[in-house]
């Protein structure tokens, strides 16, 4: 609790949430129809709705954040307000952690339990003997019980480089943070730029790796549980890196415009937290998806 109470800023009204609601609606209806359109290989309106939704969402984000930035710059926000933002962001990241947990949980269950049972372990001797007598349980799952074959993505090489890239980017971002606190604008800009470059290199390499997986390794979404978890985990991580990088890019623009002070830089900090979180997810991913 703060000892001295400042007035808490409650915006009177805002059109942005309802715009955002319409955007999500369009995205959901659009995507829902679009997915069926591609499944049936027909042309429909789904894609257009989806596109319209995304555009609306972007407009909404711009408008909403412009309001927040304006309010923040004109000093409407109290210390208490910035604590609200911080708390909000931390709990949002917590929810993201749980989203990834669902997929990690699936991975662990599949590896440790389902695979073992398909191979006759636990109380499933008959599963193996009657249904999958030819199946050999091993991880990575290179040949599924149904007979689909694939190759594993090695942990060395590209993924290792990627790990290094992300780790370094976390460090450079940290330097940027110390720079902001000591009001070293030059260092701040440079370090942010490094972070961005590292982030985008990571993404490009990731795209390259996917192409390699699909083309050379036969490792696809459809190649069984290994492919499913591999692509869903790295894929959602990739989406988050993309988001994080876009956010950092806008933070970079704001830095160029001279926003943020050593005391007041919640926007920067939120983006940084997000980036560090995405890094930690990658570390877990690297260990559990690639190495082990």
């Amino acid at each position: 609790m703060s000892n001295s109470y400042e007035k808490y800023y409650v915006p009177a009204q805002s059109p942005w949430p309802i715009v955002g609601a319409v955007a999500l609606f369009l995205i959901a209806v659009g995507a829902g129809n679009y997915i069926n359109d591609i499944t049936y290989q027909r042309t429909g309106f789904g894609g257009y709705l989806l596109f319209a939704g995304i555009v609306t969402l972007i407009i909404m984000l711009f408008g909403w954040f412009r309001n927040v930035i304006d309010e923040s710059m004109s000093g409407l926000y109290s210390q208490q307000m910035s604590r609200s933002f911080r708390l909000g962001m931390s709990w949002f990241i917590m929810s993201e952690v749980m989203f990834f947990m669902a997929f990690f949980g699936a991975l662990f269950y599949g590896r440790m339990i389902a695979l073992n049972w398909l191979g006759g372990g636990g109380n499933n001797a008959s599963t193996f003997a009657v249904l999958w007598p030819e199946f050999q349980a091993s991880w990575p799952l290179l040949k599924t019980p149904g007979g689909t074959e694939t190759q594993a993505m090695p942990a060395t090489g590209l993924p290792m480089i990627n790990t290094a890239l992300l780790l370094i980017s976390s460090v450079t971002l940290h330097f940027a943070h110390t720079a902001i606190e000591q009001n070293k604008r030059g260092q701040l800009k440079l370090m942010l730029l490094f972070t961005l470059i590292l982030g985008f290199s990571f993404l490009s390499l990731q795209v390259y790796e996917y192409v390699h997986a699909y083309r050379d390794l036969g490792l696809t979404l459809a190649s069984g549980f290994y492919g499913s978890t591999f692509f869903m985990l790295t894929g959602f991580h990739g989406v988050h890196v993309t988001l994080g990088a876009i956010i950092l890019f806008f933070i970079f623009l704001r830095v160029l415009k001279g926003h943020f002070t050593p005391e007041n830089h919640f926007g920067f900090q939120a983006a940084a937290w997000y980036w560090h979180f995405v890094d930690v997810v990658w570390l877990c991913l690297y260990v559990f998806v690639y190495v082990l």
Binding site: W117, L118, N124, T127, V130, L131
Partner: peptide, 10 residues
């Protein structure tokens, strides 16, 4: 007892 596709319960 549930009859799960791909697994056998006893």
């Amino acid at each position: 007892k549930d009859a799960n596709p791909g697994f056998i319960n006893e």
